[in-house]
Structure formats: C-alpha cells, structure tokens
Nucleic acid binder design. Structure first.
Lengths: 217, 217
DNA sequence: CGGCAGAAGTGTATATTTGCAGAACTGCTA
DNA sequence: TAGCAGTTCTGCAAATATACACTTCTGCCG
C-alpha cells in the first residue's frame, strides 16, 4: 500500500536511513540490552553520523520505539471523523488503540523484535504510550473535525441550533483528548501490570467504563 | 511553622544547599534568561559541584521550578482524606490547586521571581504542572485513603455492603488520579492561553465541568 | 549538460545528565 | 575525644543532546 515506486531518490534514501536506524537500535538492544547500547554503536551499524542520528530519531528512545509515533493512518482518521452519532471519546480511544495495534504493518519482524525489547524494559512501555502525546495537537485537530461533523449532522438545515460555536468545539476537542490520554495512562498501567498481553483493547474498554463511573455524580 | 531549631546541622546544611541552588537558578534566569544559564553558572554561585547540583535538583529545570514538586502539605492531605461525602475527583482537583497556590509559603520573594521566569518561558509553565505527575504514586496513595474512608463511612456497622474491595479501591484511586491529571492538563493549557493569571482555580473548575459533560452518556 | 536552490548530512564545540569510586563530613557512641 | 557507620559531597569519565556553521547531494530548470 505504501508506494515505494514513484518516490524520488531523496525520499527513498530517507526511508532507508530511518529503517536502518530503527533496525540497528532494536537489534543491538536485543543483543546487548537497551541500556548497554550507545548511540555511537547504533550510528556505526547504521553508518551515519551522530548528528544525523539525532536529526532522525530525536533521541535514543525514539530510535528503539520507532521514529514515527503510533498515530492513526488516513483510513482510521477518516473512519473516526465520519463516526457521527456515537461517543467521540469512546471512538477516539478505540481509534488510538487500533493505531497502536497496526504499528507493525509494514515490518512485522522488526515490530516483533521491538516488542521483545520493550517487554524486558517496562519503563519503555510507558514511554511508548507517552509518545502519542507528543502529537497532541494532531489528535486534537482530528477530534475537532469529528465534532464539527457531529454538529453539522445535528442541524442539517438552517436550523437555529448550529451546535457548538467553533471556539467551544475546539475546547471540547482539547478536553476530549486530555481525557483520552488520562484514560490511556490508566489503561497502559493496567496493561503493563498484566505483563503486556498482545491485545490492549480490553484494558482500554475497562478503563473507560471505570472513568465513566468515577465522573458520574 | 517549619522548625528550623531542633534540626541537626546536617539537615540545616541540606536545606541551605537546596535554597542556594533554587535561588541561584532563579536569579540567574531572571538576569540572563533561562536558556542562557548553564548548570555550571548555577554551581558557581551556589558554590557546589556539578555532581551535587544534580543530586539535589535532578535537572536544570528542577532547579528553576523548585526542587520539591508542589504536593499538598499535611494539612491539605488530612482535609482531603476526611472530606467524605463529596466527590473525590472534584475534591482532589481543588486540593491540588490549593497546593499549587501555596507553593510560595516559606519564601515569597523567591516565589515571585520564579513566577516571572516562568511567565517569560511558557514551556516551563507546562513542565511545572507536569511535575506533579512525578509524584503520581504519592497522590494515588492519598486518594486511596480517601476512598477507604468513604467506604467505611458508607457501611458504618457490620453492614453487608463493605463498599469496594481493596483491589477495586486501588484501581479507582489510580483512575481518579489519571483523570485529575487529564483535567489538569487541559486547565493548564487554558490557563497558559490566558497569560497565567494569578488564580488558576477557575480554570480547573471550568475544566472539570467540561469533562463531566463530555463523559456523560 | 550546467548550474542553482534548497534539502540532507556532517564536524565541532558545548551543555546536560548519569555511574562509579573515593574523600569529607556528621551524628553517635564508647 | 577518638573513632565508627552512614550520609553527603566531589572528581572523573562517558553518554546523551543541542547549536551552529559548513559540505554534499538531489531535484529541477534553462
């Protein structure tokens, strides 16, 4: 699905470098243990300079966990925005969980190895979740679109109730994301407590139900 | 209120060092701007080694923001735990807000200067809030005690409903804290948007109400 | 093709942060 | 008051990370 062709030399090289870094980082971590791997080693294997390493990965952590944070792809984003009617927060959690699950799509072996590294370094697991927060603004924008869609659907004609005004919608979007991250924090901790079973979905569902109960008056 | 006497030489020295570091960090930041201050400069002014600096402050950020994260003091903790009957989440937010407000109790001048530094470096403001999360486990424990109290009150005799079982209470405590941090994230962002007015309380209140609305079924 | 504009990569210097091993100091006790 | 045990502090070395200036390479257009 990811067109390798009709991609210029420049883009191809970039992709190659990114993959080389991730691969080197994960493989070395499996072999020596995360904390005994140095950036220098990774650079040697990936055949790049340290400076370039940081340009790509941003940090040693980033190299091991994957340079791209696990954000929903175009398909998931579209589905989420169109999901009018159901609960935006609940849908968001499901969407983020799915994005998380799809992470290894292109390179399953690398994905599996990365998973093994994370399993032996629980601190990394929490960081992995936290990385989604790096992209807060992207997610907020996604939710904002969804809410806009919802409001448009609620007032199809020129009805007097145009739903929330734009400012309110933005604030609702931000709050939805803040809550989602809160719930995910909890779910991640539970998931970690249970030894990182393959499907984190049930943890999210349970977490959401608990959140609902605790916020009800 | 903080007994300086009946405190051994060791403890006094420790306090002095901590204060020297905070003072040097804040004052230098005011003079030269946060990012132009180096740890080395701070050490020179505070007259300690770099290694000691990190032993105390943990990071340059920590030195400027204050070595102790803004946690509720004993009085606030007791009040929170005893607050049986009202909403634990709402009370927690109020308690954390109050703790935040009380930060400058002992050294108001330092507090004011610190505030000026933060105002000119918005990134620091968000970090400041985030530091409360460092102490997650402490806050969770606080909430757990409160829930225990609540449950004890709900079943005073040997009634058949002993409230939640202990495990459930712990999970509820964790979730309450996760949600509180989510709400605080939002409140902090709003607060920052408005240019950090002195009292962040209203932002928390508004955030909580919004959260309630968005989690309602 | 020649060559230009901008992107990508690199080298160097410097700053932040951690681990380790040992020195100096404090509180306590004989 | 001598000295022991435990804490605190320090120096050193190495790793992570960033800033800045410089080189090399890619895509593109005449």
């Amino acid at each position: 699905m990811t067109d390798t062709h009709e991609e210029g030399l420049r883009a191809r090289k970039r992709r190659a470098t990114r993959e080389a870094i991730e691969r080197a980082a994960v493989e070395l971590s499996l072999e020596h243990g995360y904390e005994h791997v140095t950036v220098e080693m990774i650079c040697e294997v990936a055949d790049i300079s340290q400076r370039t390493f940081f340009n790509y990965a941003g940090s040693k952590e980033g190299a091991v966990l994957g340079i791209e944070p696990p954000l929903p792809d175009q398909e998931l984003r579209a589905a989420y925005v169109a999901g009018r009617g159901s609960d935006p927060l609940e849908d968001l959690l499901a969407t983020l969980a799915e994005a998380f699950a799809r992470m290894g799509g292109a390179a399953p072996e690398l994905f599996r190895k990365r998973r093994r590294v994370i399993e032996s370094h629980p601190a990394l697991a929490l960081k992995e979740f936290a990385r989604m927060e790096e992209a807060q603004s992207t997610v907020v924008e996604l939710v904002r679109e969804r809410l806009e869609e919802d409001d448009a659907g609620a007032a199809p004609g020129g009805a007097p109730s145009p739903g929330r005004v734009a400012g309110e919608r933005s604030l609702d979007a931000r709050m939805t994301v803040s809550l989602a991250f809160g719930v995910m924090h909890f779910a991640a901790a539970s998931w970690l407590d249970e030894g990182l079973p393959p499907d984190p979905g049930p943890f999210l569902a349970a977490a959401l139900e608990r959140a609902r109960r605790l916020t009800g008056r």
